[in-house]
């Protein structure tokens, strides 16, 4: 499989072989990424448009949290009035969406899988021209830290939702849904905290770490988490989708939430 047949012109002066020589299954990783990321984007968009079955007391789907408009089934913070006729998911989904879109790990994933720049190491780029992240729109990747700030705010609400999931109409309790929302909040926290921008802001930007012992400890801890950022990125992606599916199926009456107590 050669993504580019006109390689001769691409290596002027090198005089070595020009064809794509990798014989292993380099295409498996980009293919899995396309299926995983593409599947998530399609599902999240569909779920956002539904504007229904996102709340079943006491569970609120993470795709709709925080619920900011008054037309919400379960308002978290009534910032937007009843004039908002669209799905309340669209008021908030752009924040985690932007956070993941500008994330250093996901950039690698989609530049390879969707852009094919490059599809895999030592596999030629599809496009002949390349400007990296120097020009619009990719220069906007530099606002990743601002999405990190906003996503941290959303995360606070998701933790609040997880705690609220213990408060059933008949009093304190715990169901499978409580566990699902709790695990979702934990996974999203691990993903957010292990972020490269967070690592930089907490201490990475300092040259003399010994003079800021608290920031050094934070940086050291985040650096350890950061080594697994890709894992947290994927598992939190599946976790948040699963949480929405679970709440949706319970709200639709397809499955019954099991109460532990």
């Amino acid at each position: 499989m050669s993504p580019n047949g006109s390689l001769e012109a691409r290596y002027p002066g090198t005089a070595g072989p020009t064809g794509m020589l990798r014989r292993d299954a380099w295409w498996v990783e980009p293919l899995l990424t396309v299926l995983g990321l593409g599947g998530f984007v399609v599902y999240a968009t569909w779920a956002g448009f539904q504007n229904a079955f996102y709340f079943v007391d006491p569970y609120l789907s993470p795709f709709y949290s925080p619920c900011l408009s008054s037309n919400c089934e379960h308002v978290s913070l009534p910032l937007i009035g009843r004039w908002w006729n669209l799905s309340p998911a669209f008021l908030v989904l752009w924040i985690p969406g932007g956070f993941r879109l500008t994330c250093y790990y996901y950039r690698k994933a989609y530049y390879r899988s969707f852009w094919w720049a490059p599809p895999a190491c030592a596999v030629p780029d599809v496009r002949t021209g390349y400007s990296g992240e120097t020009a619009f729109p990719l220069i906007l990747q530099n606002i990743h830290r601002y999405f990190f700030y906003l996503a941290t705010g959303v995360l606070v609400f998701l933790w609040w939702d997880a705690l609220e999931a213990f408060r059933f109409p008949d009093g304190f309790g715990m169901g499978v849904g409580t566990l699902v929302l709790l695990v979702n909040a934990v996974l999203l926290s691990l993903y957010s905290v292990s972020c490269h921008s967070c690592r930089h802001l907490c201490g990475g930007r300092l040259d003399v770490l010994s003079k800021a012992p608290t920031r050094y400890k934070a940086w050291s801890l985040i650096s350890k988490l950061n080594e697994h950022h890709m894992f947290y990125a994927w598992i939190s992606l599946f976790g948040v989708a699963f949480a929405d599916v679970y709440v949706r199926l319970v709200a639709m009456g397809v499955i019954r939430d099991i109460r532990f107590f």
Binding site: Y104, R107, K108, Y111, R112, A117, P118, C121, A122, Y130, S131, G132, E133, T134, L138, I139, H196, H200, G204, N226, E227
Partner: peptide, 26 residues
């Protein structure tokens, strides 16, 4: 800014230096 952090440098480094995560991204 031409680097789009696709991490191939890190993948091939025989000394296992985390080139992208520890040098380029910072």
């Amino acid at each position: 800014e031409l680097c789009n952090i696709t991490k191939c440098c890190t993948e091939v480094c025989p000394e296992s230096i985390h080139i992208t995560d520890n040098a380029i991204i910072p």
